[in-house]
Simulated scan of single mutants.
Amino acid sequence: MKKRVHRRFTYEFKWEVVKQYLDGMSRSEVSKKYGLTEKDIDRWSKQSRVWDLLQTSKNPMEKLRQLQRENQRLKRENRNLKKLMMTRFK
């Protein structure tokens, strides 16, 4: 089995790849052009949306904290709902 080498890419390179994908080039075309996997392109695309959200915010650190708090709240609610379902259907 061939050992896979972990490659690192600059933010600028990732942005160029995502930009081409968002401009209409298919994932398979972009992945072949740059020798990437389609998963890489999906992951970078998601990361770019979060980055854009933080950049457009007036206070990006506060926005990040707000999103983290909301994430914790949703996890707590999910846990509580699971507990409730377990006790109801025993």
Rank of each mutant, 00 (worst) to 15 (best):
M25C: 15
S48C: 04
H6D: 03
K63C: 06
M1N: 07
E29H: 13
R4I: 13
K46W: 05
R27I: 14
D52F: 10
T56E: 05
R73I: 08
E38R: 10
Y21T: 04
F89P: 00
K82G: 01
E29G: 03
L22E: 15
Q55R: 14
L22C: 11
L53F: 07
K46Y: 11
Q55K: 14
V30R: 00
V18G: 01
K82Q: 08
R8N: 06
T10H: 03
S57Q: 03
K58R: 11
R27E: 15
L36C: 06
R65P: 01
E12T: 12
L64P: 00
K90I: 06
Q20C: 04
E16N: 13
S26Y: 05
T10L: 05
N59E: 14
E62C: 03
V5D: 03
V50R: 07
E77M: 09
K63Q: 14
E62I: 09
K75C: 09
W51H: 11
G24P: 10
Q55E: 14
S48W: 09
K63W: 03
N80R: 15
Q47H: 12
F9E: 02
K90G: 06
M85E: 06
V18R: 03
S45T: 15
S57M: 04
I41F: 06
K2E: 06
K83F: 11
R79D: 04
G24W: 08
E77Q: 11
S45V: 03
D42W: 10
L64R: 04
E12G: 04
W44V: 05
R43A: 12
T56P: 00
K32M: 11
K58H: 10
E62Q: 14
L36R: 08
D52C: 05
M1P: 03
E70K: 15
R4P: 01
M1I: 12
I41N: 00
P60E: 01
N59D: 15
L22Y: 08
R88G: 04
K75W: 10
